[in-house]
Design a protein around this nucleic acid. Sequence first.
DNA 1: AGCACTGCTTGGAACGTTCAGATCCGCGCG
DNA 2: CGCGCGGATCTGAACGTTCCAAGCAGTGCT
Lengths: 343, 343
Amino acid sequence: MEPTRPTLESVARRAGVSRQTVSNVLNSPDIVKAETTDRVRAAIAELGYRPSAAARQLRTGRSRVLGLRLEPVRDGINGAVLDRFLHALTESAETRGYRVMLFTAPDDAREIDRYRELLDTADLDAFVLTSTHRADTRAAWLAEHDVPFVSFGRPWDRADAGAAADDHPWVDVDGAAGTRAAVAHLRDLGHERIAYLGWPDGSDVGGDRAAGWTAAMVDAGHDGALLRRLHARVTDGVGSGAAATADLLDDVAPTAVVCASDSLALGAMTTARARGTGLAIVGFDDTPVAAAVGLTSVAQPLTEAAHRAVDLLLDQLDGTGGTRSRRVLLAPHLVARDTSHHP
Amino acid sequence: MEPTRPTLESVARRAGVSRQTVSNVLNSPDIVKAETTDRVRAAIAELGYRPSAAARQLRTGRSRVLGLRLEPVRDGINGAVLDRFLHALTESAETRGYRVMLFTAPDDAREIDRYRELLDTADLDAFVLTSTHRADTRAAWLAEHDVPFVSFGRPWDRADAGAAADDHPWVDVDGAAGTRAAVAHLRDLGHERIAYLGWPDGSDVGGDRAAGWTAAMVDAGHDGALLRRLHARVTDGVGSGAAATADLLDDVAPTAVVCASDSLALGAMTTARARGTGLAIVGFDDTPVAAAVGLTSVAQPLTEAAHRAVDLLLDQLDGTGGTRSRRVLLAPHLVARDTSHHP
DNA sequence: AGCACTGCTTGGAACGTTCAGATCCGCGCG
DNA sequence: CGCGCGGATCTGAACGTTCCAAGCAGTGCT
């Protein structure tokens, strides 16, 4: 009835070879004679054999499983970014023979406890970190314990120092390039007075995005005084975005605004519509909401990012390529929709 | 240097007992004398011992891992629902000693292939199905192969027949109760002419939600002719929601509208604002967008749903309770915000 | 005293894989 | 002919856990 799962042993008997030869066919095909390989392959197919992950893991100590912490709360609209990254990551890992396991943790300290636990039970081979931030102790802990990992997000600490602790593989999206592209797009449309609606100082991601706008505006010949007044800083959210936009319109009357998030951009849209002004708006992250309401937005190449993250991990795990760069900065691209129009 | 992971053996030596006694302390604490237990517990703590999941799995054949398919694309705004469910599921599983592993599949047939693969490599103990729909072959396959699973979503096939194939554990949210609650809320506010903005016939979830509105309206004494004109059916999306709302306003001039999704509700908001009417609006799913724009919406109890789903799975896996009902229908609750106001 | 029984503990075996070392074979060469 | 050599394959052993049958005291009963 229950035909008992085929094992290396039963496949070997069927093919008239030994266990080890079957194992070799699967793991080191090059050291087995072609003829033997064929015979073994046939036996595998006939019996529908699949190696037991548990046995393999017990023997080799590796599980071919990657761990990823699911963030506690994804506030607002922007959580969808990690969601899409997660999907792409899972898919990339699958094509490379790895799987993704989830875990949760309320804060960084607990996250490290979970690392310890998951590693001890020998469940996980590597971790993917997201939402890196200043004073992030996780990367240091992992590095110190020789655990392979990659972060989606640059190590923001001591970005100037280039310290050893920060020298781990990472993938990130060039936020500055995104806002630069937004400014360029708006200038192409004929806009000159382009405001920036960003977050308060202290956020690294926010600083990056703001820097791109600043650089592009300076390049366009804008001077310090007006430039400063074109730069609004508010906490993320639709409401705060709407209010800040009203202030900007009253103060410096921009014809366009680049936003640090789609939430802020949505707020800007609300105010613009209420006032009946033709304010052009560009959001950031290209969340589903942006597509839904016709908001032009800067899209992160999440599929590419996930793919590269897996590459960097497997470089460490399988030791294949030390050749590749361990730091990957990807350029986002702009998705033009209704809200970016001529002045 | 590398102090080699503690094993049952080393703990046993330290505590002056045998391997098996240590194992018993962990797995069947009741059959070990209290004094021995204490000694073993101390040794475990001193050495920082943790059982190897791989070895346990190899011996017992169970991995304590649940599988969940990540949907290919989450279009629009509503994808966030599964996202939150996923988080709650992971958390619930963790508290019960289980973990969640992800996989992807482009369609149902491939998903079944993945089941086969993941089960064969003995990686997964059970599955969580989402997005159940008509002619869903997945549940039948899993049941036939005696794989424990639970679905988030009712088996919609032959809901009338109550066939054996549909007799599997499931958790779902009562959509009809949600729309009924929305109507009740609006009537409390003084609305009488309450429209419904839903999806085309053919969607089971959509039918459920529409039925709740219909029932509530009939209870309120509305008759067939006007009632039918108050019911709009459009494909999901902000744009289509906006257009349909315009039509409704022109045709039957409702003072409020209940929507099948936050996307549609967002569209309704757009039209209402454009026209300057005080249309009251209730969305569905309480997505982050709803919170962001102040949209009243029906919230699914996703944490509770995930928790119950894990309960139902563990009933099968650990054989604890056959007592519990295997079908769980949860009531959603309404989150009142700015868009539900007096007429 | 002998015996069965209960409560707690024990050592051997097994799960299915990979590693390390041994074996076997054919071949070229001194 | 004997020897070494390299390619191809095979045979124990080990990974760390749980299952199983058995051991071993102590207790109550005959």
